[in-house]
Simulated assay, not measured.
Amino acid sequence: MSGYRDLKNLEDRIALVTGASSGLGEQIAYQLAQKGAIVVACARNLDRLKEVAKSCAEFRGKKAYAVQMDVADPERIEKVVYQIENEVGPIDVLVNDAGFGLMQNALDFDMQVAEKMFRVNVLGTIYLSKFTALQMATRKRGAIINIASMAGKIATPKSSVYSATKAAVLGYSDALRLELKPLGISVMTVNPGPIRTKFFDKADESGNYLEKINGIVLNPELVAEKIVHSIGTAKRELNLPFFFNIANVGYALFPRLGDFLAAGIFNQK
């Protein structure tokens, strides 16, 4: 066993999680801590991060850290990676969860918000993956998990910009996976459907989207559990829920029908 497969056992492995102050990122941090990992929780809200880090430390008595970081700031990203490597230890697991969305028609979309979304969702992931992978490569060991979205595979009305960012994350991750595999580093993308988190507090201006799709909304704890369980494997994608994966295959085979469904019954925004 070598390389990323060594990470099936996460005991005392250092895991950096962005977007860890709430939602899926918070739950991933907790799942990692329960597996014995040393969690470095990153986000902009330091007060909330401290609470998350405290909870992580209580699971197994391991150290946990709260580090303030805006993934829209490349210089800060680079400093944080080197700070963790020098003061905490080698980063073995990176989870790029930080991101945001906004459900709005493309013709009404504020382009400053669009640029911000690309900087956070795409460039933040690229910068952090690069700086972390450079360190992982020296050890020939590491796992990178990029949280994308089914929106990157199946776009629906009012998701144009968000879907574009997640499609970019998917494209980047697919190439990165091939480049890093010889270096002992795995890259997995996670493509969930809607998750019951505070993400929609900002993304859904109507305030009732989750209620409309209540039957298919994912539980963040269960999603986080599946993600952490996949670390140390060669799994390339995690698509949730399963029927969305079937829908994606159907979309590729029958694109006209896919467009009809995406604009109709799948469009609840």
Rank of each mutant, 00 (worst) to 15 (best):
L7T: 10
L7H: 10
K8G: 11
N9Y: 05
E11V: 08
A15Y: 05
L16Q: 01
G19K: 00
S21T: 14
I28F: 09
A29E: 11
A29L: 06
A33V: 12
A33P: 11
A33M: 08
V40Q: 01
A41D: 07
A41V: 08
N45E: 15
L49E: 06
K50M: 12
E51H: 01
V52G: 02
A53N: 04
S55K: 08
A57F: 08
A57T: 11
F59W: 12
R60T: 14
R60N: 14
G61V: 13
G61R: 00
K62S: 07
Y65S: 04
D70C: 00
A72W: 03
V80Q: 00
V81S: 02
V81G: 03
Y82H: 15
Y82D: 15
E85I: 07
P90R: 02
D92H: 14
D92F: 06
D92R: 03
V93R: 02
L94M: 12
V95D: 00
D97H: 05
D97M: 04
A98D: 06
A98T: 09
F100H: 11
N105W: 10
A106S: 15
A106M: 15
A106C: 13
F109Q: 09
F109E: 15
D110S: 06
A114Y: 10
E115R: 05
E115C: 01
K116A: 05
V122I: 15
V122Q: 14
L128Q: 12
L128H: 07
L128W: 11
S129F: 07
A133V: 13
A137V: 14
K140T: 15
I144V: 13
I145D: 09
I145N: 03
A148F: 03
A151H: 04
I154Y: 02
K158Q: 13
S159D: 10
S160T: 14
S160N: 12
A164G: 07
A168P: 02
L170G: 03
G171I: 07
D174S: 02
A175H: 08
A175G: 15
R177T: 06
R177G: 09
E179S: 05
K181Q: 08
P182L: 03
L183D: 06
V187L: 01
V187F: 01
M188H: 02
N191C: 10
N191S: 04
I195W: 00
D201K: 02
K202S: 03
D204T: 02
E205L: 02
E205R: 00
G207D: 07
L210I: 07
I213V: 15
G215W: 02
I216G: 00
I216A: 05
I216C: 03
L218Y: 05
P220S: 05
P220C: 04
A224H: 00
H229D: 14
I231T: 10
I231G: 09
I231F: 12
G232N: 04
A234I: 07
A234E: 15
K235M: 10
E237A: 06
L238M: 08
P241G: 09
N245L: 04
A247D: 05
A247C: 03
V249P: 03
G250Y: 02
A252C: 09
A252D: 14
P255C: 09
L257Y: 07
F260P: 02
L261N: 09
A263H: 14
G264Q: 12
G264N: 14
I265C: 08
F266L: 15
K269C: 14
